[in-house]
Design a binder for these strands. Structure first.
Length: 140
DNA sequence: GCCAACGTTGGC
DNA sequence: GCCAACGTTGGC
């Protein structure tokens, strides 16, 4: 079981929209490193949903419901998507500032590599973020 | 809105 | 294969 963090600008696709949709395929990834992360996601993996640019905070938790398959939004076969569905909204959102101020979260990609849109988290890291958000999910 | 950081492209 | 030029992302 792995843990991830995905980023999206709420003006493009917000958590609220995601919840309304009930399920979505995570398309538009055009970066090899992010793509490679998508490819190793497994069904049932938990994924934090982060709002970039506007808000700059972790807003909810999603779950992988379908592993990587070719991106239906392009003919280019280099790119893949996964299916995600919302699990729970964060009770308290966790801002970038909160994350940056926590000593154990200094090395996560969100901080060090702010442009990477799909990045891995360790169990310890996701636990800290969930704790800060006063949110609990099964198995973490 | 600016700009630094990063990835990609293309000329050589 | 190097590297300058360019485009994009995202924090500020």
């Amino acid at each position: 079981m792995n843990y991830w963090l995905v980023k999206q600008e709420p003006s493009k696709y917000s958590w609220e929209q995601f919840v309304q949709d009930k399920e979505t395929y995570w398309d538009g990834v055009r970066n090899y490193q992010a793509r490679n992360n998508l490819k190793i996601m497994q069904k049932g993996d938990h994924v934090l949903f982060y709002h970039s640019v506007v808000g700059k905070e972790v807003v909810g938790v999603a779950k992988v419901t379908k592993e990587a398959y070719p991106d239906p939004s392009t003919d280019d076969d280099r790119w893949v998507v996964v299916d995600l569905k919302p699990v729970v909204a964060m009770k308290n959102t966790v801002t970038l500032e909160d994350i940056k101020s926590h000593p154990a979260l200094q090395s996560i990609a969100l901080v060090k590599q702010s442009r990477l849109s799909v990045s891995p988290l360790t169990k310890k890291e996701i636990k800290i973020i969930l704790d800060m958000g006063n949110t609990k999910i099964k198995g973490v």
